[in-house]
């Protein structure tokens, strides 16, 4: 016998199921009033510095159908690339949001400020991005991905550079549809499948 490792194993994930909103977005499930407000209603409060933006999209399954029961969480730094708690970070940016795909249309919306660039490990800088975590019925472990922006310089981003098939980079780039407006669809499976991360 070799020496035992004194490490533990991470608890196994399970699907969030179709009723995830009860616990995470209670007002959406019909439990309004149980808390003063749902957690993560907005990643920014009034006066947040930077460019106000709205990102809209759908989460689409392998048949092309938009999920009506997905829950998404987003996490980002402020316009200067600082996360809450870091010295000099914008106090009006909590950085965290939680939102659901609409029960009828499957559309979700994230209103935020455009994040600044963040360092990577080593000397590199990461292009501005919003991190996403996607859960739903049928998703056994939350899917991680990122939103980058087509009007930023993404050429030196260390994560995007790791994607071997260059056309797949495009699946992580939000398309500008108007002033401060972007479209970002998440394709779970098949043609145009979004790059998901193990990070």
């Amino acid at each position: 016998m070799v020496q035992p490792l004194d490490t533990l194993t991470e608890t196994a994930s399970q699907t969030a199921g179709p009723y995830v909103h009860i616990g995470c977005i209670p007002s959406f499930a019909g439990l309004g009033g149980i808390y003063p407000e749902d957690l993560g209603l907005s990643p920014v409060s009034d006066g947040a510095k930077g460019e106000a933006i709205t990102i809209t999209g759908q989460v689409i399954d392998g048949t092309g159908w938009a999920l009506r029961d997905a829950m998404i969480e987003s996490w980002q730094p402020d316009a200067a690339g600082l996360f809450p708690g870091q010295a000099g970070a914008d106090p009006a940016v909590s950085g965290f949001a939680r939102f659901a795909a609409d029960g009828d249309s499957g559309f979700w919306t994230l209103k935020t400020v455009k994040p600044g660039a963040v360092p990577a490990r080593g000397d590199a800088m990461q292009a501005p991005h919003v991190s996403l975590w996607i859960t739903a019925r049928g998703i056994n472990i939350g899917l991680q991905t990122r939103i980058y922006f087509e009007d930023e310089d993404n050429t030196a981003d260390p994560l995007l550079k790791r994607i071997e098939q260059r056309p797949r980079v495009d699946t992580l780039i939000a398309k500008r549809t108007g002033p401060g407006e972007y479209r970002f669809d998440i394709v779970l499976q098949g043609t145009g499948e979004t790059v998901f991360l193990d990070i």
């Binding site: 392998g62 990577a120 990461q126 779970l188 998901f196 193990d198």
Partner: peptide
């Protein structure tokens, strides 16, 4: 229909995570 067909992109975590 809700599982990716393609492998996950693996890399070391960054400040974003």
């Amino acid at each position: 229909t809700r599982s990716p067909n393609l492998p996950l992109l693996s890399m070391e975590s960054t400040p974003s995570e």
